[in-house]
Design a binder for these strands. Structure first.
Lengths: 217, 217
DNA sequence: TGATTTATGTACCAGTCTGTACAATAATGG
DNA sequence: CCATTATTGTACAGACTGGTACATAAATCA
């Protein structure tokens, strides 16, 4: 559908796919962090030799920043999809957490948690651009939660007295905690259980109080 | 009170204080992470030359692990103190968060967040011992919350139907989020506001629902 | 086909990294 | 005062670091 090479560029064709290479580079950084990932490792992971890396992405830092950008954008899009208005808030929240867990445990032998939280946090103290991307990335995700809670308040899904900003921050905090704990070695079932309880608390605490027992599905 | 040099050891005396040096090393790691901190930096920060560092702590990794241990122990002790039973739960929780913020913003020009969360998360994926320390560290803090909630349930501070494990995990999640967001550049007042709202939510949601306005002290 | 353009592969540079060998130093024990 | 012990300071080894210069290869354009 999408036409890729309407017109071939002039010189020798690339031996790699830039998007693919960025994904591979992301996985390398995801595993060992920015400082812990060498250009040799990036070269091996992407299949590109060093000069090609520089030609395509600039230096190591620029490549890392590009990887962060892509990751945040994909995560945001996934969240928006999971939180779609035609699913009740609690179910949407749970979909976000389930999706996150699937990503964080994608490599079952070595759970990596969240790429942004797991690697950019360290670099943020040293590199202002990383700090900015980490900050805006986290805020974007929180704001996605907030938008859903706000819509839910308008819908009547959530009583008018509740604060969508606070609920969004709490939902974000749960996500942060899961991301971190996955990388810290906590088991997936335990985090899944936590996420379910947290959803119940956040969506239950928001309403006028009712029985928790015997709720359908 | 504590006698330090009841008997001087045999050889040439040390030119440094081991505890002090560990604190200095911690600050270095706190800033740039494990991989980002060189032995030269550690040497400069501690005032010890390389062979002394090796003699005192072993290699760089061992030194980092010792720094993590000390940090977790101090944090745990601070938390236990803040959550003492003779202060209401909500106030105790708030003391924990206020203390954390004071620590995370100790260097106002460059907020470093939490040492454990900010640096060990990155290294955890590569180093099993760091992962273990991160995991047990986080769990210890959460269990400290849990103990306080459990005591509060026994006291009547919190209704018997609530789950202390969940509340502790939520309180921990708020702490994790604050730690992260401090390092991501969020302002201290915004995080303080978040912590206050979170305390209200966690301690308010736990009780049978009542007015928030006009509660004494 | 030959000129042009772009990307690749090799090889390398200068600097930095972690860790250590070794001599000098400063204390104690007899 | 000399032997012993432990730490310090210097200097260095060997590996690895990020980044680049340069010749080669593969495509298009005329």
């Amino acid at each position: 559908m999408v036409q890729k090479e309407l017109k071939r560029p002039r010189g020798r064709p690339r031996a790699y796919d830039p998007d693919d290479a960025l994904v591979q580079a992301t996985e390398s950084f995801w595993h060992a962090g920015f400082a812990g990932t060498s250009l040799d490792a990036l070269s091996a992971a992407t299949g590109m030799n060093r000069p090609s890396l520089y030609g395509a992405f600039g230096d190591k830092r620029e490549l890392y920043l590009a990887a962060l950008d892509r990751y945040v954008e994909v995560s945001r899009a996934d969240m928006v999809r999971a939180l779609s208005d035609d699913v009740p808030i609690a179910a949407g929240l749970q979909r976000v957490y389930d999706g996150a867990l699937a990503l964080y445990f994608a490599k079952p032998e070595a759970p990596l948690g969240c790429f942004l939280i797991g690697t950019a946090a360290t670099e943020a103290a040293v590199d202002a651009r990383v700090r900015a991307k980490l900050g805006t990335g986290l805020r974007e995700l929180t704001r996605t939660f907030e938008a859903r809670f706000r819509a839910g308040r308008k819908n009547g899904e959530i009583p008018p007295g509740t604060d969508p900003v606070l609920l969004a921050e709490m939902a974000g905090a749960v996500l942060h905690s899961i991301a971190l704990r996955a990388r810290a070695g906590d088991s997936r079932p335990s985090l899944q259980a936590f996420s379910r309880a947290a959803v119940k608390l956040l969506c239950g605490a928001a309403r006028p109080r009712r029985r928790t027992k015997g709720s359908a599905r």
